[in-house]
Simulated scan of single mutants.
Amino acid sequence: MIDSIPRFLNGAYHFIGNGYDKPNLLDPRLVYTVPFDKRAQLIYVRLGNSTSEMIYLSLMHDGKPIRLFPVGAKSASHVPLAVVEDLPPDSRIELFLAAPSGCSGSAVVDLGLVEI
């Protein structure tokens, strides 16, 4: 039996948008590196958006976007992931956010991973 360890990236984070085509790291605390002796899988994402504009979060894997999560204006979403791929050892996961230029608000993030 393989023991799994849950890991979470979560919190409420203030942002100022630079445009939908220019996502930026939402916060340095929203970075996760898979341990050298483990694999990881993304299990779910919950997101909230305080602004009156649509935003999106981009899940980056070693600097490349692998999933996009749009969140409507003054809305929230829960995405249980049915397609789950392994993230190999030493993979770096980051959460970037994109919003219209000058759009200011808060994003609430709860991302769940499991290390195996």
Rank of each mutant, 00 (worst) to 15 (best):
K64E: 14
E94D: 07
L9R: 00
F96Q: 03
I66H: 01
K38F: 09
V108Q: 10
G48F: 01
V83S: 14
D3P: 10
L97A: 08
A40L: 02
S91W: 02
S91F: 06
V83M: 12
H61W: 06
P88L: 11
N49M: 06
R46D: 07
P6N: 12
S101G: 07
A98S: 02
S52D: 04
V84Q: 15
T33N: 03
P70Q: 02
S75W: 09
E85R: 12
H14A: 14
L57V: 00
I43A: 03
I93F: 12
G102S: 09
A98Y: 00
T51F: 01
A12W: 13
C103D: 04
L59I: 13
N10P: 04
D62K: 10
L68H: 10
K74R: 14
C103W: 02
S101Q: 14
G63Q: 13
H14C: 02
S50I: 01
H78P: 00
A107E: 00
I5G: 08
G11R: 11
Y56A: 01
V31L: 09
F96S: 01
I55P: 00
M1K: 10
A98H: 03
L26I: 01
D3T: 15
V114L: 12
H78I: 11
D27G: 03
N24V: 06
E115W: 06
G105Q: 07
R46P: 00
R92D: 03
P23D: 03
S52E: 06
I2W: 12
P70Y: 03
V34T: 08
F36Q: 11
V114S: 13
L47D: 00
